[in-house]
Nucleic acid binder design. Structure first.
Lengths: 158, 158
DNA sequence: GTATCCCTACTCGGATAATTCTTGTCCGAGTAGAGGAGG
DNA sequence: CCTCCTCTACTCGGACAAGAATTATCCGAGTAGGGATAC
């Protein structure tokens, strides 16, 4: 089980985008330089956040990405699932219905017990991430660097 | 993020092995037939459980696998981590220390805030799985099939 | 009848390919702003 | 001096390869029980 590194990039990245002065956007180039990330690949993940309705994209000069909603209304869970998909990492193959001592279909109306166990764990994971908002992510940037960051974003927005 | 299907196989499989009559082992061939799984690949996961100290293996005729400990002392978490590894699915690359507005090392004594958020979610996931024991897994097999299963295991143990 | 020895058949374990998913990259479509020309 | 038009440069978006992890497989090493043999 491995989480795409795009998750880390975007959790940091959204925290940066959220610091953009009102009315301005953050170009993916600026964001890539911020953390020294491959810009082309970063684009792939940014696109996913746009599709998920977390960011909005603007083209042309002074274009870029900005938050689509209030920072307090965007959770870390949304960001993670925008990249990784919202499906459970555990996919029940219903192996109980196969083999020599197969469970007859009439006993399989309810989901497999093991699937239930794994899903419960997955929900616990989701709940934990749902409690974190973009506002919290913004606070994770050290106070001493915040001004420097905002100045940089303002400069690149023209 | 995708979980190896070996997790499903082994959660079911350990539940079956736990039903073996005392003093007997379950050969991997029997287990493979139980759910119609590729025997050779199944071996790989079984081996992992042996390394983790969850199962013990016996070679030769009437050999096979059995629980290394009391069913109540083995958790689903152990089984999952024996296969997937105990590392967190989120690996912090410390991108905060790279790029143009890099966080100076003296501010990085404590782990990255985003890493903390992800780890907290991972711990919630682990706690949920830690609450499930092999005894619980055994109960997931429908009562009406349990006798059939035990009879089959006894027959194959010679 | 009993004990011993050998032998066969069955078991697991590690080393080895095929496939799928993640990662990484490129170039094209579209747009908004800047600059110049005309009124 | 103001307005309009054109043009350029910058933006994102989707299609296209490389690498890594998972999936799948084979064959060899070792062992324990069973059978035959000798006593």
């Amino acid at each position: 089980m491995k989480l795409s590194q795009g998750v880390e990039w975007m959790l940091h990245g959204v925290g940066v985008i959220a610091h953009a002065p009102p009315g301005t956007s953050v170009a993916r180039r600026v964001l890539a330089e911020q953390y020294d990330l491959p810009e082309a690949y970063l684009a792939k993940h940014l696109k996913a956040l746009v599709r998920a309705g977390i960011l909005t994209a603007t083209t042309g000069p002074a274009g870029g990405f900005r938050l689509a909603r209030d920072p307090a209304d965007i959770t870390a869970l949304e960001i993670v699932e925008a990249i990784e998909g919202s499906a459970s990492p555990f996919v029940c193959q219903e192996i109980r219905q196969r083999g020599l001592v197969a469970v007859p279909p009439e006993l399989c109306r309810r989901p497999c017990g093991i699937s239930t166990v794994m899903d419960r764990a997955h929900q616990a994971w989701r709940e934990s991430l749902r409690d974190v908002t973009v506002v919290d992510l913004m606070r994770l940037i050290p106070k001493s660097l915040r001004d420097k960051l905002v100045a940089r974003l303002a400069a690149n927005a023209r």
